[in-house]
Write a protein that binds this DNA or RNA. Structure first.
Lengths: 108, 108
DNA sequence: TTAGGTATCTTGTGATGCAAGATACCGTGT
DNA sequence: ACACGGTATCTTGCATCACAAGATACCTAA
């Protein structure tokens, strides 16, 4: 898979999964990996950025067989961001598809 | 527009436009900008990369009111690359869309 | 001669994904 | 007791690529 395609897209993927349910980092990797390869070295810095930006809050929860899990929950700002980025992705993907199909007139 | 979304995508956009007709750099910026913002500082390094990789060849042609234009033409390798990257983009976009719609089971 | 449109190119900066590895918890098998 | 593997979080250094800003230069028209 082209690594460059993922730039910026993984963020909206994380926001979108979190919009459905709270997750911990390791779980997000598993969820998103069903569709798109993503590694732990990517998810943790991304989650820290989201927290710094106020789009998520965190809480710890014990797990059965392993260290405690840090769950991430969308804030109001995070939900707004998820909505906006989703729209932006949709517009962007439509533009690219139009270009690739040769429909190269802005009105199409 | 989210700059990160464009990473890697502008390359397939350029290949796709060149698949329809030979273009010079300035013209490519104008063509692609109908759909997606792209600047000259992006297109020239990108075109040099494509040339280094053997995906395009170039030829000079005089212009009426300005310096000569450097036209870019796809090579056989470039056409193959255009085809492969187009498929990869389509698969990628479909995966992202499925994720954003919550259809998060690889079989969907 | 000055200004602006056309056209190519380079430099430095910023964003972000990844590989690789460190750390640590826990249960199972030897 | 000990080692191992699965679970879980995190950091460091690297590579890629888009962009802003600017340099260069050609030509026409005011």
């Amino acid at each position: 898979m082209n690594i460059q395609f993922k730039k910026g897209v993984l963020e909206i993927c994380v926001l979108s999964v979190l919009a459905h349910k709270d997750c911990y980092g390791y779980e997000l990797v598993a969820e998103i990996s069903k569709r798109i390869d993503i590694s732990e070295g990517t998810i943790y810095p991304l989650l820290h950025r989201l927290k710094d930006d106020g789009h998520v809050t965190t809480y710890l929860q014990e797990s059965a067989g392993g260290p405690p899990r840090k769950y991430y929950r969308l804030t109001e700002s995070g939900r707004k961001e998820e909505h906006e980025q989703k729209e932006e992705w949709t517009r962007f993907a439509a533009s690219v598809n139009a270009l690739l199909e040769g429909k190269n007139h802005a009105a199409d």
